Simulated scan of single mutants.
Amino acid sequence: MEVTLEMARTAIRAALDAGAEKGFRPLTAIVLDAGGHIVAFERSDGSAPGRFAIAHGKAYGAVMLGMPGSAQMKRAEDQHYFMTAMNGAFGGAVVPVPGGILIKDGDRVIGALGVTGDTSDNDVIAGLQGLEAAGLTGAA
C-alpha cells in the first residue's frame, strides 16, 4: 500500500477537525510519502505560517529515520550527539519531538504525518485520530 492523495487529505482534514473539536490551538499538518516527499499539506486558519517548517520537520524526521517523534526525542535526550548528527545530515530539517507520526502498512513505513500547533502530546492525539479516519495505521 502507498499513501494516496485522498488518504493524505482525509488524514489531514480529520486531524485538523479533531484539534478544533478538542479546543486545541490551530493546527498545521503535512503528509509525506516513504521517500520524504510532500503528498499534502494544510494549515488551519490562525496557525502561524512558520508551522509548515515544524510540521514538515516532524514528519521528515519520522520517515527518514524510521522512528516516530517520541522516539527521536528520547534519543535526543539520551544521546544528543546522535540527533545533532542526524539533523546535520538532513540539512537541519529534523524536528525530533512528538507529532511526527509514522504511517505504516504492517511493518513497512509508507510515510509520515507531521502535526504541530498545540502541545506535542495534543498534536499526536489529533494526528492519530486523523490517520484512523483515513484508514491508516500510525506509530507515534
Rank of each mutant, 00 (worst) to 15 (best):
E2D: 15
E2W: 14
E2I: 15
V3E: 12
L5Y: 10
M7A: 14
A11Y: 12
A11I: 08
A14D: 09
A14F: 09
A14G: 11
A14T: 11
L16S: 04
A18K: 08
F24G: 03
R25F: 07
P26V: 06
T28K: 02
T28G: 08
I30N: 05
L32I: 06
A34W: 05
A34K: 08
G36P: 11
G36H: 13
I38F: 02
A40G: 06
D45Y: 11
G46L: 10
S47W: 01
S47E: 00
P49R: 11
G50V: 13
G50Q: 11
G50K: 11
R51F: 09
A53K: 12
A53L: 08
H56T: 02
M64E: 07
L65R: 00
G66F: 00
G66S: 02
P68I: 02
A71V: 03
A71C: 02
K74Y: 01
K74Q: 02
A76I: 00
E77P: 01
E77G: 01
Q79A: 11
H80F: 09
F82R: 00
A85D: 08
M86D: 04
M86I: 03
N87H: 12
N87T: 13
F90G: 07
A93Q: 14
V95P: 00
P98K: 02
P98M: 06
P98T: 01
G99L: 09
I101G: 09
D105C: 06
V109W: 00
G111E: 01
G114P: 01
G114A: 02
G114Y: 04
V115E: 04
T116H: 03
G117E: 10
G117T: 13
G117D: 11
G117H: 09
D118Y: 09
T119H: 10
T119E: 11
D121T: 07
N122R: 15
D123H: 04
G127I: 07
A133C: 11
A133S: 08
A133N: 02
A134L: 06
L136P: 04
T137C: 09
T137G: 07
T137V: 12
G138D: 06
A140S: 15
A140R: 12
